[in-house]
Design a protein around this nucleic acid. Structure first.
Lengths: 143, 143
DNA sequence: CGGTATCCAGATGGATACTG
DNA sequence: CAGTATCCATCTGGATACCG
């Protein structure tokens, strides 16, 4: 059923991009570009973690830092800037003392989160199978 | 409709992992792990390109290299090894002269390809919107 | 043909110190 | 509080040469 859902979505891409709908679409060069684009967006170390943390609603910079263990200030700032540049998050400054800055998901960001969770779904579904392959491959290689 | 499909899949993850189904699931720490896992799988520069090229059926090493412009022998070999390790592709050697080696997608690989195409779908759908955000952000930053 | 091995440049990201 | 600036280690991947 998961496979069926994905196929539905997949047909939609092509319908939008080249108006070639149908049940049996195939990989083409355009796909490569789109994949590169989304990997640039979320393929780094922290983007999806931040997006996921923002699901609960607007959150302050420091709370974000606390919610994402291991992230450095530098990477938090840098990644947030990229996400803002791509319209995934918004930054709102409240002129108070001490200053307060809140980050929130845009609609675009929310839809990206949903897509990313589909990825997590696949990963969860096949986690065990992948692990089995890894260990069998490693033991075969070791000998 | 795309959003609905994704939500369906998303609910399934949780059902499998923590048996907490329902219409309104939320991001949790498990998701982070699964995201890391799949990003390790396809977050690099060449994996998805290779997977996409393999959709058409089994293909020789050298034909694969020709089909993916810009890839070095080193990265082709390295990436193929990772994909084999994770059970995404198989390698078959034919003891002929000259030697022939064919790579093919496994079932797991095919389902991964479908999932990745869902990502491409999102990217295609929102490509224009992202571009608009980027240019407006850049011009706002430049001044 | 189908790789390996070595070397090296550039990108990524962590640690630390400092600032409005 | 919410960053910025600098320095540095590691990782990724390209070029090239060589091998079974």
């Amino acid at each position: 059923m998961s496979a069926h859902d994905v196929r539905t979505v997949r047909t939609n891409v092509r319908a939008n991009v080249r108006t070639v709908p149908g049940p049996c679409a195939h990989w083409n060069d355009q796909d490569a570009d789109f994949i590169r684009e989304i990997l640039d967006l979320v393929g780094d170390k922290w983007s999806v973690l931040i997006i996921g943390t923002l699901e609960s609603g607007p959150i302050r910079y420091s709370d974000l830092a606390d919610a994402i263990p291991g992230i450095s200030q530098r990477m938090l700032t840098l990644t947030l800037k990229q996400l803002r540049r791509n319209g995934i998050v918004t930054r709102t400054t409240y002129p108070e003392v001490p200053p307060r800055v809140e980050y929130a998901l845009t609609e675009l960001g929310a839809s990206l989160l949903a897509t990313v969770l589909a990825l997590a779904a696949w990963s969860a579904d096949h986690h065990a199978e992948i692990l089995r392959h890894q260990t069998s491959f490693d033991s075969a290689t070791a000998t």
